[in-house]
Write a protein that binds this DNA or RNA. Structure first.
Lengths: 198, 198, 198, 198
DNA sequence: CATGAATGAGCATTCATTCAT
DNA sequence: AATGAATGAATGCTCATTCAT
């Protein structure tokens, strides 16, 4: 019985989260009210408050959902490769591809990260939210092990990780007409290789 | 007469903008109301509406102010150098230094860019607001002319510009205790040099 | 269940409308704010916005309510009469009586008609709001059928309708001490009869 | 010196009043703010407060101006006629013609009469504003003297005056496409003659 | 006589949240 | 589990008025 109810509850929660993502992508964080989300999900406002302890809780859960989607996609691609060089290349490729194909998800994520704040008013983009960003952990691991296995040369993995992730994020502000995502991907990889080469 | 009055108005506008920056940095865009700004500036809410046509107008002007501060600082440093190699290095150095010493200004800028929207609901971070980001123009110029003068090797200036600016932005999320800004700056420069070397 | 809830909502809407009428009659349209109406109804301001989409919507509904009250009263009296002559006389009589006994309602109606504007800024008193004024339709019908049945003589029903309704409206500005409503009613009827006599 | 200043002041007052009339006709009383009037007149808001003791004072003066314009026009026409019958006919004709040619003025007048209130919150349309409406006095005089001179039959001049003025006011809500003002004028006169005939 | 800076109150509206049902 | 009625606070904004210059 509890199981069944829990299933219903879980489905409801996901339904609400998906409605939230849609709203965030379309109208942005600060126009996204609980009642607009409720509208999109065809449920009552009160029901959201029943399933989430408040707006902040909903946003935190939505963010976790979005992060998990991206992480799973990229991790899946990386695990299919053997060498760290390949893993690194596919990490960059997959990251850019995910951003390219899931504009809405990415917009929603940005809206939350740059707008939501913890109860003590720290913005998410500065907060050391729970466990350290898992994609960063993955990337640093690739770089570190690539050095250990002598595939890569000498560099500070933490710094290079930041540079790579910066380059990926920056792709968002690419002038879309001048440079295709594929070209950008290729060129970024080439540049990164120069940085990590022996 | 007009001059004097205009000076008063200009001073007021700057006072309001500075109060807005403070508020943005402290409590974030979506908690920053006109009345909180007015409070900080010790003036009435209505006076803000008298000097700016609305909240959006105030935010746009605040953004312009912030961008101009940063641009002036960095451009000043760059112009003191002769070779493009030096110009590039000081561009990165100055950018990171500015971010390090003006956390509040940078936070305020981010809050606006990622939260404000044009009247037709396009977020600033996607909108092709006014002329293309002037710092980007400056950076691309350095890279381009450095290639022409044979100081730099072969690469796509636009892509490298994005990577560099991504690395600079990403410095914001540096784990502050593990790596000093100076170290980061040095290491970034070293990595960048690898990318642009002949 | 739905029925019960809907009844609650309907009762609330009528309560709000009645509070609006009171406020309009007492302090006039442009001093009648939602919060003053809320105060009169002992509810919160937000609740008005919950039941009506905005001030204009509330005013439109209030106007419809007022018009319907008057129409129902007069139409009821008219239907009790057989000949068109009698119908016409009772139309005038009832109109004046309604105005006399429901000063507040009539004031509220005037306040709305002469102050409210459609979203495109057309005043209600010029706008071809919904169907043509139903009382006018009723009056013109009486005049027209009275001509057909040879009870009345020859005249333009539309013009006479305007004159009659003008005379009724003008009663509002009667110097109340010099001439009683009953006397006025009687004299108006006598004059009107002269106009429509064969 | 005083004379010259007074002339300037008078011109200023008229300029402000004319700007007010324009604003009232275009956007209605409740959207007409002092600053919008000031804008139209190309002067500062404060100057209006200098020449009029407040918004109510300005509106009262604007109303007086409008009433005087209409009164002068109609009285001029009436005085050119000799018999009371002719005077009556031209009174109606001129009233309707004035309304037809001065829509803006008439709209402004309505906006004031139905929106402005005395300091003790009595609406102008109910207030026994200063001297009794001068056009009403003129009309009653025509009717009364016409009876004395045996041109007209027996009726209550006050009641007939109200009816006539009601008919004139009602012309405002004439369906403009179906009936021309000239036709209406002619038909009204014919009907009125029936009422006052011996 | 005229300006423009400034105030403070009031406005309609939206929102997150609560609660009885 | 779910609804919809209700609250009270907050928001951006406009306004009539005042006042030093």
């Amino acid at each position: 019985m509890e199981n069944k109810q829990s299933l219903i509850a879980d489905a409801r929660r996901e339904q609400i989260i998906k409605a939230a993502i849609e709203a965030l992508a379309e109208i942005g964080y600060h126009n996204t009210s609980l009642s607009k989300i409720a509208n999109k999900a065809n449920i009552s406002t009160g029901l959201i408050s029943y399933h989430f302890s408040g707006k902040e809780d909903l946003m935190k859960n939505t963010l976790m959902y979005l992060v998990e989607q991206e992480r799973a996609f990229i991790k899946g691609k990386v695990e299919q490769k053997q060498t760290y060089m390949e893993k690194l290349m596919v990490f960059i490729e997959a990251s850019l591809a995910y951003l390219g194909t899931n504009r809405g998800y990415n917009t929603a994520l940005l809206e939350i990260v740059f707008n939501a704040r913890t109860p003590d008013n720290v913005p998410y983009y500065l907060a050391e939210i729970d466990d350290e960003d898992q994609l960063n952990v993955l990337l640093k691991e690739i770089l570190y092990k690539g050095q250990e296995s002598k595939e890569f040369g000498d560099f500070d993995p933490q710094v290079i990780a930041i540079v790579i992730r910066g380059a990926i994020s920056a792709s968002m502000s690419l002038p879309q007409n001048e440079l295709s995502l594929e070209d950008y991907s290729e060129k970024i990889i080439k540049s990164v290789l120069k940085m990590i080469k022996e």
